[in-house]
């Protein structure tokens, strides 16, 4: 098991995060975000490290990770893509886009591509219904999509 620890910049950020809260447990979600930014997913090694660092039992951390759609307990990829499939986006083809992308790249929902480039996730309402259908590519919103433009945007990713 390869040990995880925060890099130098993130060690500093971790210390700063703790000052934002009146107890250590409240800092858990921002710390998980920070770890995921560095490691791309929250592996058992990451959880073990955070548990030791913060004095929070691993089971408590795993509970939190499993509850939220944006914390990943399995490997993702260089590019995480979230496709909205809620009411307005589905009205304008969001579901066909989600399925079409999976078919085009021969992927399964929430499983990384073999080359480690793409990870596609079906999502609930992303809060951008005026640009339906929409998706997020690595935290950036893309709206008014068609299957063709969606595939094009993913093909050019590194």
């Amino acid at each position: 098991m390869k040990k995880f620890e925060f890099n130098t910049a993130n060690k500093k950020k971790y210390q700063e995060l703790l000052t934002h809260y009146d107890d250590i447990q409240s800092a858990l979600m921002p710390v998980l975000h920070l770890a995921q930014e560095q490691h791309s997913w929250l592996s058992p090694e990451v959880v073990a490290h955070i548990s030791e660092l913060m004095g929070i039992p691993e089971i408590k951390i795993n509970e939190v990770i499993s509850f939220y759609d944006m914390f990943y307990d399995h490997p993702t990829a260089r590019n995480v893509v979230q496709v909205c499939t809620n009411i307005t986006c589905s009205m304008f083809g969001g579901r066909e886009i989600h399925k079409g992308i999976l078919d085009h790249f021969q992927l399964h929902n929430m499983r990384p591509s073999q080359d480690g480039k793409l990870y596609i996730q079906k999502m609930e309402c992303l809060g951008a219904c005026e640009m339906a259908p929409c998706m997020r590519i690595n935290n950036i919103y893309e709206g008014h999509l068609t299957l063709k433009t969606a595939v094009q945007k993913l093909e050019v990713l590194p």
Binding site: H20, M29, H33, Y68, D69
Partner: peptide, 12 residues
């Protein structure tokens, strides 16, 4: 008054 931006992680 201290103000902090705290990000959720995807849960309605």
């Amino acid at each position: 008054f201290e103000l902090v931006v705290h990000r959720g992680a995807g849960a309605y």
